[in-house]
Write a protein that binds this DNA or RNA. Structure first.
Lengths: 328, 328
DNA sequence: ATCATGTATGAAATCGTTTTCATAAATAGA
DNA sequence: TCTATTTATGAAAACGATTTCATACATGAT
């Protein structure tokens, strides 16, 4: 394992000069520059990152918090983030919080101990008041999560609008009994519900408690939802589900019980995942332009790290779009 | 930002004693131990990782190379790896090689510059002879990739068997004209093809060049394959596709062109992804037990890092299983 | 009482870089 | 020609931890 000392020795120069070449500082003559580069090449020398970081060089690492990378929405999002990060020479540290508050907090240690230059929170479990103290250790931004209290940049979609246009679409299709599924009480869910409620109350419909489902995340959860709906004395005729996975579960189970989608039950998904187009019937869904959110969040984070942008309480809102297919 | 010096000052002790408490070394009296812990607590002190790593403390980070995290097989695999890594206090650095040899080599710098304790290669682009020189900088293992030359631990599935049982299944269903799809020439693809060829030649069938498709990865590629098959003067009656995504593309496009699956065209997938169960018809596929490969690889890597296992040319082979559904 | 051993602590060296400071040579301006 | 500035280089300090070395006090055996 070679150090800068070895390179200096081999080039017949001082460590300082080698360091200057590495960080291409001015005032190094061309011949020495070449001598150093040759020595580095010959030894296969790569600077020890820990030593560099001790001198306040950036780690070029960014932690990305997601609840679970196996969720296609997140894996697509992270894929986009990684792609953009790589073009700037940054690495991603993958942090699965698994919807666990304590686990989420643990990851902030990466910032305190200077293992990362910043944190992108693509999922957030804790309230802002508990996250805020960590901001003094480095930049934290929100991605796809919205907390009005958070005094940092929030790259996100208008989830209220998402809930609104999805529900509105069902209303226009003639449905008045619309169920609503959500995961946990994240800002995303809360805002989508606001949109849903806005749409139905606009036309004078009261929300029905039995049609509001919580903690619905997976395909299997979707199947459960269908079974529950089927057992209701007054079942809804449409469901606004929180994701395409849930929608797929509902639709698949409905077919198994010989319900016709959309005639017996209309279903709206969310995310426009590949599966939405493949299922029979194809799923009407809401496109979140995942790749764009990923790119944009990473751009913002890198700008903040490079100090070409300040991290204030600012919303960057990206568009959202209904894609009508066969499930409604 | 507090340092060990601040903690020492506050506790009225030396840095050495504080360090001893952090690394719980023996020979520290209980009262001082408590004093140090209180001081650390009060200041919210977390040791600077770079400084620790300078003294050869482990980084507790492992790089995972995959071709693309958005591929559900990889995101599931990485999810499992992260879960297991977290229980040992390790973080994952996500490296998307995007099937690029140069990009793959870049990631080895993480090892040379001591930013990670080891590398798990869940995809490999370069030949072993170019990877081998990096092994002197730290442990590298293969996961789900098989290179007989590689003199490191390889956690993998018997892909020859996978290709064999999938093809055999089609033969038993009465198909003799079986097409074969693969991605690039990775060890996985090469071995599966061996299994495919073994199965057909066993019953005296000659491989047909027009039925061997390459560079097939995505749902869209699957659709292409169907269109190509449809145009053939002598089309196959069955396809062994490289993944459930490809299978889904083929099946979906076939339905669109009013071909009946499996009567007009039988399709075998690979991976047993969620989609395999949701599609109509459901996809007959081969289960790779992704979670198990992830867990096992991470166990092996951590054992090697902890020096409780040596990293020799050893194969750890996990089982593989055919799941018969409706597409065959 | 004396010596060996085990326990407890701190001063200072160390890890591999970057940066400051000092100094010397080269160039430019008068 | 003389001074001021720019260019070029190296010695040594600094970053924040861990570890070695030295030292001192207890304890126990003789």
């Amino acid at each position: 394992m070679y150090t800068i000392k070895d390179v200096a020795l081999r080039a017949g120069l001082s460590q300082a000069t080698v360091s200057r070449v590495i960080n291409n500082h001015p005032y190094v003559s061309d011949d020495k520059k070449i001598a150093v580069k040759n020595a580095m090449e010959e030894l296969g020398y790569v600077p020890n990152s820990s030593a560099q970081q001790m001198r306040n060089v950036k780690t070029k690492k960014i932690a990305v918090l997601v609840s679970r990378i196996a969720n296609p929405f997140f894996s697509q999002l992270v894929d986009a983030m990684e792609k953009r990060a790589a073009t700037y020479g940054f690495q991603l540290i993958l942090c699965n919080t698994r919807i666990d508050k304590a686990k989420e907090l643990e990851f902030f240690k990466l910032l305190i101990s200077k293992q990362v230059d910043g944190i992108i929170m693509a999922s957030v479990e804790n309230h802002w008041s508990v996250i805020e103290p960590y901001t003094k250790y480095g930049p934290i931004i929100y991605c796809n999560e919205y907390d009005p209290d958070a005094t940092v940049t929030r790259v996100r979609l208008d989830q209220i609008e998402g809930g609104y246009i999805g529900t509105k679409h069902l209303l226009e299709k003639g449905h008045f009994k619309i169920a609503y599924c959500q995961g946990n009480d994240s800002s995303v869910s809360v805002n989508r519900r606001k949109g849903y409620l806005k749409a139905i109350t606009e036309v004078g419909i009261e929300p029905v408690k039995e049609w509001m489902f919580r903690d619905v995340f997976t395909i299997e959860d979707g199947r459960d939802i269908f079974r529950k709906i089927k057992q209701l004395s007054k079942p809804p005729t449409a469901v606004f589900s929180g994701s395409d996975e849930v929608a797929a579960g509902i639709i698949h189970e409905a077919k198994k019980h010989s319900w016709h989608v959309p005639n017996d039950l209309a279903v709206v998904g969310f995310d426009d995942q590949p599966i939405a187009e493949l299922l029979d019937p194809q799923i009407t869904t809401i496109n979140q332009f995942t790749t764009d959110i990923g790119y944009r969040s990473m751009d913002v984070m890198i700008e903040i790290i490079n100090k070409t942008r300040i991290n204030d309480a600012q919303d960057i809102i990206l568009p959202i779009q209904l894609i009508e297919r066969q499930s409604t």
